[in-house]
Design a protein around this nucleic acid. Sequence first.
DNA 1: GCGACAG
DNA 2: ATCTTGTCGC
Length: 223
Amino acid sequence: MHTGPETVEQAIAVQESLRSQVDTAGPGPQQPRYVAGLDVAYAGDEFAAAVVVLDGLEVVDRAVVLGRTAFPYVPGLFAFREVPGLLTALERLRTTPELLVCDGQGLAHPRRFGLACHLGVVTGLPSVGVAKTAFVGTWQEPGPRRGDASELLLDGEVVGKALRTQNKTKPVFVSVGHRVDLATAVARVLDLTPRYRLPETTRAADRVCRQALKDSQDEETAR
DNA sequence: GCGACAG
DNA sequence: ATCTTGTCGC
C-alpha cells in the first residue's frame, strides 16, 4: 500500500509541490474507450477503495483494495485519505484507463489541487473531478435542463462548472483534474450520465467498494 | 471573530 | 463518508 504525509503541514507542502505539475492544456480524450470510476467506502478506520473500468456501460475491469485510514478527513486535504488505496487499486488493473473520473474536486480547490488533480498527476493519466456539492467558489443556478451549466468562479477564475446532468435535478460540480480542458471534461461527464445524475463510472465504483467493505465487515463479525 | 467546509 | 423509514414523484 502507498503511504503519504503524516501531518497537515506536510500534506499542504505536498500539494504546493505537486500543483505545478498539473497539465491543463487539453483538449484531452474525445472518444475514450476505457473510462475509470473511483470511489472509497468507510466503516470507522477501515476502508475499501475501488476502481472500475467501463467500456461503454459495461464493466471490463475492476480492482478493490482494503485497508485502514492513515489520514483523517480534513477539508482541502481529502485526497490524502483516498489516494493511497486508490493508487494501489489502479496498479492492480490490467487495463490502462484513458480517463479517470474522480469523486470530488479537481481545480475547484483552495490550492487548485483537489483529488482529481492529485490522482492525475501521480498517475500521469487524464482526470476529471465530479463532485456532488461545491467546495469552493461561487456560481449561479444553471438552467433546468440536462446540459445546462454555469461557471464556478474562485478569485475571478473559472475553476469548474455547475452542470445539470438530468432535467430538474441538482447540478454536479465538474472541474479539470489533469491533461483535459473544462469543455472536454463537461462533454465526457454528459456522456457518462445518460440516465442518472451521477456518472455511471461513479455509480459502478460506489457499488463495488460498498459491497467489498460489507463483505469484509461481515467476515470480521463471523470470526 | 464566526461560519462553512469535496467525502 | 456514515447514521437511517417511509415517502413523494417520474
